[in-house]
Amino acid sequence: MEPEQLPIWTEYVRVLGTPVVALLAASIAGFIANRQWKTARNKLKLDLFDKRIAIYKLAITALQNIRTNKVDVKAVEELENSLHAARWLFNIDVALYLHELALRVYKTDRPSIDTNANMTETEFAEALIEREKHEATYQQERSALDAVLSKFLALEH
């Protein structure tokens, strides 16, 4: 008496079942690894962005010196202190630009309008014109800063 023969598809399932399950498990593991890699890459981008935006904010704060009539030496010094990191977070050209910017800000003559002082109308008008020039300089410096740092401050995914 011959043993009962199983259908042929059961032989295929028995032979191919293990590789199919292994392939499915490898696919799931690959998908999870890919998502972890993307998450780590996005975290790195965010960390770099946070550090870069901090230096950008320091530069903006230092630029405010151009518009005001008093020097905030602390803001310029903080920008100067951050320039060592800027070389690694941006590139050497940006670090040199930020250094030159800090020097320009520190050396800028600031207009002073003291409303309590006895100024003639002409002196007052000249002081206002000087203040407008400084405002224009600030706007130019701000635009240049934005142009230089824009490619480093873009969060792209």
Rank of each mutant, 00 (worst) to 15 (best):
F49H: 14
N118P: 03
W9H: 13
M1E: 08
A54L: 15
E132W: 09
Y106D: 05
L149D: 02
E123Q: 13
E4M: 14
V105W: 05
E2W: 04
A25W: 11
A59F: 00
R52H: 04
D47C: 07
E132C: 04
R14W: 01
L145G: 02
L153C: 03
P7T: 06
W88I: 10
R67I: 08
P3C: 07
I66H: 04
V94N: 08
N91P: 09
I8R: 07
A102L: 03
L96Y: 09
L96D: 12
T61N: 14
V73A: 10
K70L: 07
A22F: 11
I92T: 15
P111T: 12
S82L: 00
E2S: 14
L96P: 01
D72M: 01
L58W: 05
A86I: 03
A147S: 06
D93T: 11
R87A: 09
K43H: 08
G17Y: 10
T137N: 05
R87T: 09
N34C: 07
L155C: 02
E141R: 01
W9R: 11
L98N: 09
L149H: 04
A54F: 13
L46T: 15
M1Y: 09
I129T: 15
P7I: 03
R110H: 06
G17I: 08
A95M: 05
A62R: 07
Q140V: 00
A26S: 14
Q5G: 03
E121A: 10
R110N: 09
Y56P: 06
T10F: 15
P7Y: 10
N65G: 04
A117V: 02
N91F: 04
L6E: 12
F152L: 03
P3T: 05
L44M: 12
L44T: 06
E135Q: 00
G17E: 12
A86R: 05
T137S: 07
V76K: 03
